[in-house]
Design a protein around this nucleic acid. Sequence first.
DNA 1: TGTAAGGCTTCCCACCATGGGAAGGTCAAG
DNA 2: CTTGACCTTCCCATGGTGGGAAGCCTTACA
Lengths: 138, 138
Amino acid sequence: MNIGEAAEASGVSAKMIRYYEEIGLIPKAERTASNYRTYGPAAVHSLRFVRRARELGFSLEETATLLKLWADKSRTSAAVKQVAAQHVAELERKIAGLQDMRATLIHLMHCCEGNERPDCPILNDLAGSAPACHSHDT
Amino acid sequence: MNIGEAAEASGVSAKMIRYYEEIGLIPKAERTASNYRTYGPAAVHSLRFVRRARELGFSLEETATLLKLWADKSRTSAAVKQVAAQHVAELERKIAGLQDMRATLIHLMHCCEGNERPDCPILNDLAGSAPACHSHDT
DNA sequence: TGTAAGGCTTCCCACCATGGGAAGGTCAAG
DNA sequence: CTTGACCTTCCCATGGTGGGAAGCCTTACA
């Protein structure tokens, strides 16, 4: 199986497969006599694993940890769960941050007439000017 | 006012001020005879504006747009509101993505014993194996 | 007036993941 | 044997930010 087929089969681009190999996330692929990388079913399975981990937002570093745990028959499910929990905490941190931004913007937009005139509470906020409306809630 | 003081006063690092100037987000600062950048209150005000926009998650490109609108006395508040609305939509897209990840992980963690044994629904999911538990909800 | 500390300048490198593309080798089908 | 589709490596770009080196400038103090 060439890299293109492996990419197709795993959903990971050829570009990324090479990169993952380069950074040591996955082992170096075997090469044909003409220097083409070849992949077997096991390698494709690993690539799918990586892809799924990425889909769930794990960093490549976390993904590496998960791959090691996956390979380690003597892992504990507690260890895996801890990695997941840490990641969930991180996700929640990010979500909270984005939601804060959203809430602020929604509020400001609420206060903004959105008409032909230039007066704009949104710009006022960015400019650090005094508040422009007394909230109607989010 | 030197760049360090402007950084202090605006909350934007000197490094970033130079970068913003380089990419044309803010105008080139005046220089002293000895090539030091100097900043007046207006420049600091702009930097604060940028900082606030960044806090609200606007990209530098969006920030540039907002700066232009801010400078343009004949803008319409509708135009500003539209930029904000677009950004809110983007935030919501991101939030939804992160929440999906979170929900999936929470579910899998729910299914995971988190004990000494190696069996782990989280790894099973990543490995693309069949589901391992029949949900207890999020 | 000399010197040391701390600011400023530019320039390059790093992160994290990913994509784009060029230049050149290889394989399969016609 | 040519053509087109693949593969290889290599460099560059993205978005923002930080780190640090080498070299100038300024300020404060002895």
